[in-house]
């Protein structure tokens, strides 16, 4: 396959960026999108140019490191992560636009790499549970109904890649935050911090400068792990419940 790429190049956080056009040839349909970018980078290095910086780690679709808005879609045209997106999803001769996540809470570090540490700070605000120290507890000491375990697992699938923020026209982190809150709030282990968790994590989300939710549903469409839009509704319900229960 021969492709024409238009890639966002930006030297550092303060420098202005621009789309730069590159031609790549000899791309196999079985390559992943990141392997295609590796091919481009090898050529750039051989030519003595600066390679394109992009985030990646496991390349198995489970770590949440890779990003990229490809032709206007977070993680590209398939419902998966960029590392699991294959070039067979494109046609020979295509022009492909590659841009970084766009949100003021996710500033560009270099080229296609953005700083997603805002997500870490949301987790720090309440994405944990209280556990007694000592030896591991007996596995059946706390029974969890099957439906609750399924709901928790559905939300636990979130890998924190930030595609929801990238896809949202308001740069909102509601889907990520709701997934993390619901994952723990539905379980008995998450019970002790049920109210403070939702209040603190939503407050941390607001403080990071993410936008609000206008229920466009773009986040759930972009999510490679299929976190559903009603996840946000559940978080709203938890938040309203917590404001009634917690004395400030």
């Amino acid at each position: 396959m021969k492709l024409r790429l238009r890639v966002w190049r930006q030297k550092n956080a303060d420098a202005p960026g621009a789309m730069v056009t590159y031609e790549v040839d000899g791309i196999s349909r079985d390559m992943s999108f990141l392997e295609m970018l590796d091919t481009l980078n090898e050529e750039l290095i051989l030519r003595g140019e600066e390679p394109v910086a992009f985030d990646h780690d496991c390349r198995e679709g489970i770590c949440g490191a890779c990003s990229l808005v490809i032709n206007g879609d977070a993680h590209g045209p398939e419902r998966t992560t960029t590392c699991q997106l294959h070039m067979r999803s494109f046609e020979d001769g295509d022009t492909i636009d590659v841009e970084p996540w766009r949100a003021s809470a996710f500033p560009v570090v270099k080229d296609l790499v953005v700083d997603r540490s805002a997500f870490d700070r949301i987790i720090q605000a309440g994405g944990y549970i209280s556990v007694p120290t000592g030896s591991a507890p007996e596995a059946h000491a706390t029974p969890v109904p099957k439906a609750d375990a399924d709901a928790a697992f559905e939300h636990a699938e979130c890998i924190g890649c930030g595609a929801c923020v990238a896809a949202c026209p308001n740069g909102s982190a509601m889907l990520f935050t709701s997934a993390k809150i619901n994952h723990l709030n539905v379980l008995p282990q998450g019970g002790p911090e049920r109210e403070t968790r939702v209040l603190d994590m939503v407050a941390a989300m607001d403080e990071e400068g993410f936008g609000g939710c206008t229920l466009t549903g773009e986040c759930a469409t972009a999510c490679p792990k299929g976190i559903p839009l009603p996840s946000i509704t559940t978080m709203n319900r938890e938040w309203l419940r917590a404001t009634r229960k917690v004395k400030r």
Binding site: R6, A103, S104, P169
Partner: peptide
Amino acid sequence: RDIRARPSKYVH
């Protein structure tokens, strides 16, 4: 707030 949270638009 929403407009501030997404200052730069996508080219595509």
